[in-house]
Design a protein around this nucleic acid. Structure first.
Lengths: 107, 107
DNA sequence: TTTAGTACCTTGTATTATTAGGTAGTGTGT
DNA sequence: ACACACTACCTAATAATACAAGGTACTAAA
């Protein structure tokens, strides 16, 4: 998978997942990994950045399977960002597709 | 438009356009700009990199409207790269879409 | 002569994903 | 008791690439 494609899209993936439920970091890595190759070293700095920008609030919860889990909840600002970013994503994809699909008869 | 989305995609745009016709750099900027915001400072280094990787060959042609134009032609390697990259692109988009619409591809 | 448009190019900066680690708790097998 | 795998958090250094902001030079029109 092309690494570069992912830039900016992981933020959308995280926001989208969190718009439906609270998740902890490690869980997000697992979920996203099902579709897009991703490593922990990518997610944790991203979560910290988005927390700093007030897209999330966090809370800790004990676990019986390891250390405490840090859950992330979308704020109102986070929900708005998710809406905007997903609109941008769909728009972007359709622009790229129409650019790379312009058929040329002379071929 | 989200800058990050563009990473890696411009290479696909350039390869796709050139798979149908020869273009010169300035012309590529204009064409791509119709759909995706792009600046010259992005395209010229990209063209140099892809030329170095033998995806293109180039030739100069006089112009009556300014300095000589440097045209780019896809090599066989360039055509193959275009095929591979566009397949990766479609795959990537569908993976991201199913993730943000919440259905795991693995099912 | 000046300006706008065409057409090429480069340097430095910002952003972000990756690699490759580290720390620590829990459960399983020997 | 001990080693190991798995869970779960985190960081530092590096690589890739788009951008802004410049520059050079040619042509045509005002």
């Amino acid at each position: 998978m092309n690494i570069q494609f992912k830039k900016g899209v992981l933020e959308l993936c995280v926001l989208s997942l969190l718009s439906r439920d609270d998740y902890y970091g490690y869980e997000l890595v697992k979920k996203i990994s099902n579709n897009v190759r991703i490593s922990e070293g990518t997610i944790y700095p991203l979560l910290r950045r988005l927390t700093k920008e007030n897209y999330f609030e966090t809370y800790l919860k004990e676990s019986t399977e390891g250390p405490p889990r840090k859950y992330y909840t979308l704020t109102k600002k986070g929900h708005e960002a998710k809406e905007e970013l997903s609109n941008e994503w769909y728009d972007f994809v359709s622009r790229v597709n129409s650019l790379i699909e312009e058929e040329d008869i002379s071929e």
